[in-house]
């Protein structure tokens, strides 16, 4: 099977992210945690989903033909893990830490792999634009609040993350606008998949 490589990618990435020097290093800064660890675990789950294709699993396919149930699971799980109290909780409570390492790949990355392609392009753009504006709002909040959102991190790290989210989301938005108006046509003229 060609797709066996995805399983290898998935396992390798998961192991790298969970060995303690790496996880400790990433968890020592807010940027490492939010922009490397969580997306990394998601990617590991995504690759797992690429390997374990949904089409082989008839039950899942019939319940996730439109991709909407799968993407909803991914969205709710992501919201859960970016709640500041869960970010703190996963650093101080072992049970939450284990839950985080398991549910981010299985309930965010894997459903994305199984759902994204089947989503209607309107739903895709709805999610992309909402995602970008959410990052923008988060960045703005982190930059403009005097409170430390997470007790385990210094305010300077919160501001660094705020800056990256704020300017990052603006850049992504501008790039998307550029693409939409003058970029490769397939990005803006996707065939609707009903």
């Amino acid at each position: 099977m060609k797709t066996i490589k995805f399983l290898l990618y998935s396992i390798t990435l998961f192991l790298i992210l969970t060995i303690s020097p790496v996880s400790q290093f990433l968890e020592s800064s807010m940027v490492g945690l939010m922009l490397i660890q969580i997306p990394g675990l998601t990617l590991s789950g995504y690759w797992l989903g690429k390997w374990l294709k949904m089409n082989h699993l008839v039950i899942f396919k019939s319940y996730n033909h439109s991709g909407i149930p799968g993407i909803l699971i991914a969205i709710f799980t992501s919201i859960y893990w970016i709640l500041p109290r869960m970010v703190d909780g996963a650093l101080t409570e072992p049970i939450l830490m284990v839950a985080k390492y398991i549910t981010i790949p299985i309930l965010i990355g894997l459903p994305i792999a199984w759902s994204w392609k089947s989503l209607h392009s309107v739903a895709k753009w709805f999610i992309i634009t909402n995602g970008i504006s959410m990052l923008f709002v988060m960045g703005w909040l982190y930059l403009n609040t005097n409170i430390r959102v997470c007790n385990n991190f210094l305010i300077s790290q919160q501001q660094l993350l705020g800056n990256i989210l704020f300017y990052g989301s603006i850049s992504i938005f501008l790039i998307l606008v550029l693409f939409a108006f003058m970029g490769p046509a397939q990005l803006s003229r996707e065939k609707p998949q009903l």
């Binding site: 699971i73 709710f76 709640l83 109290r85 430390r148 997470c150």
Partner: peptide, 24 residues
């Protein structure tokens, strides 16, 4: 999924009152 998701978030934030560990 939406109902379960909202319920979990509702419980996890003490009825949408506590979003940070400090408030919790």
């Amino acid at each position: 999924i939406v109902v379960i998701g909202l319920t979990i978030l509702f419980i996890a934030t003490d009825s949408f009152q506590a979003f940070t560990a400090e408030q919790a």
